[in-house]
């Protein structure tokens, strides 16, 4: 369950961005659409607690995260939120499996190798357990970042332009995987994108317009 109310954010020296009130039910899959400059990424960062709003509230899992301290936000994010970025970044010194281990560790979950293997196998990465990030293809990297997002069974999965760098085949595959894994984990899925290919894939759409 995600609810926002009168959310505003202002970058230093920038105009005030006002976001429409959002209400997304637990387990729903929704799309936040908008052209560039409409504050899509800003909204996603606000929702995931990477930015704090100047005004308004954000409730996730009945917790108003706009009231949390930075350290509490880090902990909350680790526990409840999985994020897939447009360009996946990993800890380059660690293998795929170790990248997932550290995700478990940092969110204070017990290290569970079985879960890691299970998730990677589901995402067809079973053979990449001990590969290093630089050895992966673009599509594989995106799948590993999905694996990382869901490894802790978060309540919410946010994806920021997860498909814009991918070709059609990979685009639909990634979308399918995101929806599938979100469903399997009963997680709310929110994809922020300007990728029109995804429009048909989702019933619930939130359109951001230029301020």
């Amino acid at each position: 369950m995600i609810t926002t109310n009168n959310l505003t954010y202002q970058y230093k020296g920038g105009a005030v961005m006002r976001f429409p009130n959002i209400e997304i039910a637990q387990g729903a899959h929704s799309l936040i659409l908008g052209t560039s400059g409409t504050g899509k990424t800003t909204l996603l960062h606000l929702l995931s607690g990477m930015l704090s709003p100047q005004a308004g509230s954000i409730e996730i899992q009945d917790q108003d995260i706009s009231k949390l301290s930075e350290a509490s936000l880090d902990a909350f994010r680790g526990k409840n939120i999985g994020i897939v970025f447009q360009v996946p970044h990993f800890l380059s010194a660690l293998t795929v499996a170790e990248n997932l281990e550290i995700a478990q560790k940092l969110s204070k979950h017990p290290i569970n190798i079985q879960r890691i293997e299970e998730v990677l196998t589901k995402l067809n990465l079973g053979s990449k357990l001990n590969a290093y990030p630089h050895q992966l293809s673009q599509g594989e990297k995106q799948r590993v970042s999905i694996a990382r997002a869901i490894i802790n069974k978060p309540a919410v999965i946010f994806a920021d332009e997860p498909t814009s760098a991918l070709d059609d085949k990979n685009c639909f595959e990634v979308t399918k995987l995101l929806k599938q894994t979100a469903s399997e984990n009963n997680a709310t899925l929110v994809i922020v994108t300007h990728d029109n290919r995804l429009k048909e894939e989702f019933d619930k759409k939130i359109i951001l317009e230029e301020a």
């Binding site: 930075e70 350290a71 880090d74 994010r77 680790g78 800890l91 550290i102 940092l106 204070k108």
Partner: peptide, 15 residues
């Protein structure tokens, strides 16, 4: 990016 990712995964500034 790696440092930022650590934060995203639940690590704090202290981490």
């Amino acid at each position: 990016y790696e440092l930022a990712i650590l934060r995203v995964m639940g690590g704090s500034r202290k981490t």
